[in-house]
Amino acid sequence: MSEPILRIRGLKTYFFMERGTVKAVDGVDLDVGKKQILGLVGETGCGKSVTAHSVLKLVPYGGTIVAGKILFEGRDLLKLSNEEMRKVRGTEISMIFQDPETSLDPVFTLGYQIGEPIELHQVIEQHLISPKEVPKKVLEALQTVGIPDPKARVDSYPHQLSGGMKQRGMIAMMITGTPKLLVADEPTTALDVTIQAQILDLMRKLRQKLGTSIFLITHDLAVVAEMCDRVAVMYAGQLIEETDIIPLFEQPLHPYTQVLINAIPKPGAKRGKLATIPPLIPNLMRLPRGCRFHPRCPKATDKCKRVKPQMIEAERGHLVRCHLYS
């Protein structure tokens, strides 16, 4: 594979709260290849969403990126000034969000909101087009995401659109600058199943058409199976397994991943209880010693309680953080 477009190294994003420090992202290394779709999976609160926001340096209030490098085409984004970083957003890197209901500004029309980044980046900053061409570009963006009757939708306010249309509209708003990397934070979680499939389909088409790499954050392994080339599994602020899509499902190494895969109901399988893990969501303020997963791990040994496991390459291209493989 060629040089990856995004390389995250040793990323640490902490939230300093009154009651203590939440290490939401605690040393993450990740590569997203050109035109690749990389999935980042994990349960709620494991830090996957904060990782995504860190890439755009849009960490929610209270959070700070304390260490690491985020190399985008070789440039360390963390070293850019706010103004330089702003110019990267919406042009080279873009993001789509989970909830289309709340991610569009309710007091502006869809056309205005799509036109905003075009006007700013392409007219004012880069002088690529004249102001008169903006409406045409807006229509193009709406056509690209496949909104029916785009001319009529330009003047619609968000509340006049359906959930699926809003999500398409938001994607249109984010791809106007033909970004090289699209960070998608749970893009289908809030949608109906049928619309989910349409949006995933749209994202695949965008990769084909625009050559965009996609960094897809989700908790849904079905979405991962359908979309991703490579997958990283996150647990309590750290990656615990990273591999290509096929080995993940056929030969998961980490006990946590194994439980996740086994928890998927399989058609034709014997009826019985679904596999579950003990419901102990880790407290990111007070992490267990040793392996962070050991309190819930079915295969935990004494060593797991004492020694922190390192990420090792157990098989070619298959990384895992577990003492079972050292």
């Binding site: 957003r89 873009s94 991610s103 905003e116 980044p117 700013l120």
Partner: peptide, 18 residues
């Protein structure tokens, strides 16, 4: 300011004053 559409506006690369 804590709403999603503000985050989205920043993700579009809009200027902070906008």
């Amino acid at each position: 300011l804590s709403q999603d559409y503000i985050r989205a506006a920043r993700a579009k690369g809009l200027r902070e004053r906008t």
